[in-house]
Design a protein around this nucleic acid. Structure first.
Lengths: 236, 236
DNA sequence: GAGTGGTCTAGACCACCAT
DNA sequence: TGGTGGTCTAGACCACTCG
């Protein structure tokens, strides 16, 4: 058994793109040229090219030709990532300052978000996170005590996601985010070292484990000049 | 000019799914039966079905048949939606005020985003969009003239996405969004009926057709008290 | 073995773009 | 006008599933 021809062609072109033989926005050989090169019917070439277009490697212009897509845009998108991973991938040095670490009793609003009962206990952590010593966000986390026995304050000096996945061995599945704009109040302005009423991104976040249980509810204030959200959406 | 046959077939089947004529996991007619029904070549049927598979409406089992996919998952999340669809789904009355409608020459920055060449022409549209007579966003659109011949200002008084999909018969695939926070400048404040320096959400957006070509670059300013972004992200 | 989808052919005509 | 991609035909053989 051997690979179908259209997959062979697909692979050849994909590799040429990934290896930089074809550069973004460069014209690739026409369907007719490829047909001669591979000695197949034109429909077979189109099958391969159509798949690559659907996968975001190419785009077509009727009457002009087929071009290599810009892959830069598609990176780093739609992944649940801890702040540590994210900022480190930009090559910045991270510091976390833990302002508060205490146990609280959950009210009705919080209990709904974390699938708890009012009266249950949760950890409350407040910290400021900086990249290259510039404050980027003020973060307020609520974590069900039942999921985080023996939680130590020290965890929040480094990557919480690393702790969750590699120490507790939880499997993180997905998160829901709501993103709004706000004017900084005095507390937020002070911790982010900006002026009162400067605009900030306000995000609320609930993250879920792969068994469907929410394990954190977070409210974060991001400095507008240090952070932005990127997302890819599909029509369907 | 009329719709290509494969699109007609696609639409028929998609509607049958959305109207519940075909239920999830139900077997649909075989390619041969559809070929006879529409009196076309089998490749044309396959073209239509392959598109529907890629769009998540169907799935195929070699040797068994083609089935309706389960659409429950992923609804309302991560969908590219025009503002009109979105606000109408909340039951609000929409009005659009078109401030500008003109042709401009694209500079280098814009040409990169729309895969054009500096010097090419683009439409520039500026409009304020309101729900129940409260301004929600100020929008600045750039559209390649080559994709929108005979574009009329009137289109922007109602749903642009409706025009794209049902008049021009383009297939919208996905979009890339960047979301930031800003303080409103005088122009933005005036159009959104807020105070200068009030925080707003600033979004840039590039939307792509299913052949991979970008067809719009948009910059929007959203009133912070009228709008927020919701997204679901996955780890992996 | 009969029916399904998967791959492929060798053409054709059309719509669009550049020159 | 010539070259590009877009649509379409009328077949063919293969791989898979099921009775």
């Amino acid at each position: 058994m051997q690979k179908p021809m259209y997959q062979v062609i697909e692979n050849d072109i994909k590799e040429a793109i990934l290896n930089g033989v074809y550069q973004p926005h460069q014209l690739i050989p026409s369907e007719n040229e490829l047909r001669e090169k591979y000695n197949v019917a034109r429909m077979t070439i189109r099958h391969a090219l159509t798949n690559l277009v659907n996968d975001g490697y190419l785009y077509r212009h009727q009457g002009k030709g087929t071009y290599v897509a810009d892959l830069k845009l598609e990176k780093n998108i739609l992944r649940v990532r801890g702040f540590t991973e994210e900022i480190q991938s930009l090559g910045k040095k991270i510091t976390n300052k833990v302002l508060r670490f205490e146990e609280v009793t959950v009210d009705e609003k919080l209990s709904e978000k974390l699938f708890l009962t009012p009266g249950d206990k949760a950890f409350y952590i407040e910290r400021v996170r900086s990249g290259n010593n510039i404050p980027v966000l003020l973060e307020k986390l609520y974590l069900p005590v039942r999921l985080f026995k023996n939680l130590k304050k020290e965890v929040f000096h480094s990557s919480f996601y690393d702790y969750i996945e590699n120490v507790l061995n939880y499997r993180v599945s997905h998160c829901m985010q709501i993103i709004e704009a706000r004017n900084a109040n005095a507390q937020v302005a002070k911790h982010l070292e900006i002026n009162k009423n400067d605009s900030v991104l306000f995000m609320t976040l609930i993250t879920y484990l792969s068994d469907g249980r929410p394990f954190e509810y977070v409210e974060s204030y991001y400095r507008a000049d240090q952070y932005r959200f990127i997302q890819k959406s599909f029509r369907g």
